[in-house]
Amino acid sequence: MKSSRTLREVYGRYWYKFSKNDLSIVGLACIAGVVLIALLAQWISPYPASAGLYVNFGNAGAAPSASHIFGTDQNGRDILSRVFFGFRYSLMLVAVVLSVTVAPGVVLGLVAGYYVNRWFSAVIMRLADIFVAVPPLLLALSVASVLTPSAINAMLAVSLAWWPWYTRLVYSSASSIRNEDFVRAAELVGASRWHIMFKEILPNNLGSVLTKVTLDCGWVILIGASLSFVGLGAQAPTPDLGTMIAEGSAYLPGQWWISIFPALAIVVVILGFNLLGDGINDMFASGVA
């Protein structure tokens, strides 16, 4: 009655669960769009030069029009092009922060969760608690203010605030999975600790980690933008969405387009990642239908 599943069946089921909620598809579409735009920014921006040190005061502060759909900023740069390049910067921030934090966070959580009654588990978790107790934005602010404000330091600061969430997530599920009978069975057989942690426990956490990664993409972008907004992140002329909003805020409400369009862009990205994250969560949720 049962035959081995083909790849198509496996992914078909995942897609069925993911797509049951229409909003997940909207999220996927948003993020796919943003990623494509970021990758192809050079070629699809109407004014690629606007991303860098480019000044055209003759055309400064122009309202949205056919040639500049989002208008131009105080230096005469095309806002649409800068938003396109801004996506690229945002996604880079996300990629760097998450690639630096997820792996160590997950491993620490795995170790602390498997050795839940040992002293170093307590040390890891208290350390994580301390970092969690400080709001990420505040921690990022203090790091950025001690070091020179730059894009790299902003990423470093955000990373410092981020790893404990993964540690906590994996810790809580690993410390319950370690009591499952299949872990007991592996221990009784004499399997190595490395095997038990990485081959038995970790695969059962990947779904929730992936969901969190997706949801976090949005938050990392938001925090990065906030840092830039207060001047502690990316510096001019880097086309960063937060910096753009900050610069444009001086011209509100008259030249509203200078900050409103980058703000809308942030909303789209964050909303997109959140909806996508919900979809991924549904995808890994167990249960029939």
């Binding site: 499952e180 009978d181 299949f182 069975a185 081959k199 038995e200 695969p203 059962n204």
Partner: peptide, 8 residues
């Protein structure tokens, strides 16, 4: 259901 690892 708990004695086999669902991912293996």
């Amino acid at each position: 259901s708990s004695s086999l690892n669902p991912k293996r």
